[in-house]
């Protein structure tokens, strides 16, 4: 019984191989488009994972930086800050001490800072808030009040950037999901078309097989195998291509450049690859099922 099942499956693979061979151009075309869609899917996931990872490097901060205009009266601003609730401490940095601040904080930019004129740097006030006083609403309220103050050029705080990234993440999530869904449907459609083409080309053969006693499974299973072979190969090619691009551009060309911005690009982990692989497999099965359903 088991050996008969093994023989059945061996025969299904043989028929699938014959089908692929007989429709080599159609399969090659489907393979190329599927590889492309899986590549885009994986690329989107890679982008999302990296943005997420970059965002997680931002720690929750209680610090706000208030950059002053040239010749602005710092005392007015400092007095205003002093009246605010929740402020732990304030430190004023003149344009000269701004340079020292930068040299201390961004050591990896030393070569650039060396050629910089300190007069071009703005004076700023660093505000440290009390832990219990920090909330998104509280900081954004203070941010708006400080921004409208005379002599203030720019107000910056980490939470603001964090909020913007969250917004950006939401946007990428929505766009990514729509693109993902579109590519998923596209890959189903490609599998569907490739198998439908096989069915149309082999309609005569299918008819003969049915007349001599072939079951629907005998005819359909090789089609599923054919669809899955195409899907798996397309997926392998796309993941290898993405990995090769990652290796070439990230490690050998842009490694130091991205390091400059404290960005460390990471590749997809096995679980993430497995999820996309599963999606690819499902698209292959769905495409074959839909195309063959019509004929049986």
């Amino acid at each position: 019984m088991i050996s008969q099942r093994v023989n059945y499956f061996a025969n299904y693979f043989k028929i699938a191989a014959l089908n692929i061979k007989s429709n080599i151009s159609g399969n090659a075309f489907a393979f190329l488009i599927m590889s492309f869609s899986f590549f885009i899917m994986l690329f989107l996931l890679l982008c999302y994972i990296n943005i997420y990872s970059y965002m997680s490097t931002f720690r929750k901060s209680n610090v706000m930086l208030v950059f002053l205009k040239n010749n602005a009266k710092k005392d007015n601003v400092l007095n205003f800050i002093g009246k605010l609730n929740g402020v732990k401490s304030t430190v004023y940095y003149s344009d000269k001490s701004s340079m020292k601040f930068l040299e201390k904080r961004v050591k990896h930019l030393k070569s650039i800072l060396k050629n910089m004129n300190p007069d071009n740097l703005p004076a700023f006030i660093k505000i440290n808030f009390k832990d219990n006083a920090v909330s998104g609403i509280f900081l954004s309220n203070i941010y708006l009040r400080l921004k409208s103050l005379k002599g203030v050029k720019l107000v910056y705080y980490n939470k603001m950037l964090q909020n913007r990234i969250v917004q950006f993440m939401f946007f990428t999530k929505v766009v990514g999901l729509i693109l993902f869904l579109f590519l998923f449907i596209l890959s189903i459609f490609i599998s569907y078309s490739a198998i439908k083409l096989v069915i149309l080309r082999k309609q005569g053969e299918i008819e003969i097989l049915r007349l001599i006693g072939a079951t629907n499974n005998y005819i359909r299973i090789p089609m599923f195998i054919e669809g899955e072979i195409g899907t798996v190969l397309s997926f392998l090619v796309s993941i290898l291509l993405l990995f090769a691009i990652y290796k070439i551009f990230i490690f050998y060309k842009f490694d130091s450049f991205l390091e400059f911005f404290r960005i460390k690009i990471i590749f997809l982990n096995p679980q993430q690859i497995a999820v996309v692989f599963l999606i690819a497999i499902i698209s292959g099965i769905a495409g074959t099922y839909l195309s063959s359903k019509k004929f049986f």
């Binding site: 008969q4 023989n7 079951t215």
Partner: peptide, 10 residues
Amino acid sequence: LGLEVSGIFG
């Protein structure tokens, strides 16, 4: 083919 569809192989 006549035998293969009936599950006879080898």
